[in-house]
Amino acid sequence: MTALPSVGARHAPGLREESDASVIERSREDPDAFAALFDRYADDIHRYIARRLGTEAADDLMAETFVIAFQRRHHYDPTRPLARPWLYGIATNLVGQHRRAEARRLRALSRAASEASGERSGEAEPLADRVAARVSAESSRAAPAGALAKLPARHRDVLLVIAWGDLDYAEAAQALDIPVGTVRSRLHRARKKLREALGGSDPTAPADGTDEQEKNTETEESARG
């Protein structure tokens, strides 16, 4: 596996503000420059993979994401100033190589949280008090994890790269190499299935409860059928 340039390498003052595309272009002649991209996005990519596959897998796949990106830097489109969609696309493809592991993890989270909730009533004081908050949090994740596990992989990718990767529709389309219309359609169907499974709630929806693009898609879907 090709090694990355030294992570955390020092760069000239002011270069932190240059665009991702400029960093990548500069790294073609100066490989150490690529470390700036790692500094900017490694934590986000790790967090995204960890939510899908767990922390242990994320440690390896985050590093692999940047190794692959480094190897492909000569093919990066310099007209795209932000590299986030590109990196999330690589990360999502790596997650895709572990579909069964992801589904197993989601089902296990669902079972574990449900079992913890069921055992709460049998716990003696003060142990029950100490674990009550943890059990409550686990219980709140049980149903969503189970519902996510049942989604088709292509729908789950769109949903989670937007909800957990914080990409917009255009960025998700770039990351997954699909048309924006396909992103909208898959996201709408995924969230519809989640709401049906969770009694109308959607833990992946924006925190403020608004998503104008999603509302527009719902309107179009209703008009068609």
Rank of each mutant, 00 (worst) to 15 (best):
H46K: 08
P31M: 03
H75P: 02
G225M: 02
E64P: 12
S114K: 10
D44T: 10
A108G: 00
A116R: 15
S117I: 11
R80K: 10
L87A: 05
G54D: 01
P78H: 04
G8A: 07
R16F: 03
Y76R: 11
R107Q: 08
R26L: 05
Q213C: 04
D32Q: 14
R72V: 04
D166G: 15
A163S: 14
M1L: 09
Q97M: 08
R156M: 02
A147D: 00
R141C: 06
K215L: 11
D77C: 00
T210F: 01
G209H: 02
V7Y: 07
D43H: 09
T2M: 13
S117R: 15
A143M: 03
E123A: 15
E17P: 08
D32G: 14
D39E: 13
L167R: 06
P31F: 03
L61V: 11
E138M: 12
N216A: 09
A137S: 10
A91L: 01
L127N: 07
N216F: 00
G54A: 03
P31I: 01
E29H: 15
P203I: 12
G165S: 11
S27C: 09
L187W: 10
L159D: 14
A63R: 09
W86R: 09
A33Q: 09
R51N: 09
I45G: 05
T92W: 02
A124R: 12
A33F: 14
P203L: 10
G122V: 05
R28Q: 09
A63M: 13
V23Y: 01
L187M: 12
R73T: 04
T219E: 01
L148M: 07
S140V: 03
A103C: 11
A69S: 05
R16A: 13
S121L: 10
E102F: 02
Y48A: 11
R111H: 11
E138H: 14
G200P: 13
L53S: 07
L37S: 10
R120A: 15
P126C: 08
H155R: 14
G54K: 03
V131K: 12
Y76T: 12
A63H: 14
T204D: 07
T79N: 06
Q174S: 05
I24K: 01
E218L: 01
P31K: 04
D211L: 00
D202Y: 02
R47V: 06
E138R: 14
V23A: 08
S222E: 07
D30K: 15
H98V: 10
R130Q: 07
R130D: 06
S22A: 10
V7G: 08
R134P: 07
P126L: 11
A50Y: 02
R47W: 02
H188C: 12
P203D: 09
D39K: 13
W86Y: 11
L94K: 05
L159W: 03
A205K: 09
V23I: 14
P152Q: 02
M1V: 12
P5C: 12
K192M: 06
A197N: 11
R72P: 02
E214Y: 15
S27F: 02
E18C: 12
N216T: 01
V161I: 15
R26G: 04
I178P: 05
A58P: 13
G165I: 05
Y76F: 13
I24C: 02
R26V: 06
E218F: 00
D20M: 07
A190I: 06
Y48D: 03
Y41H: 15
H74Q: 13
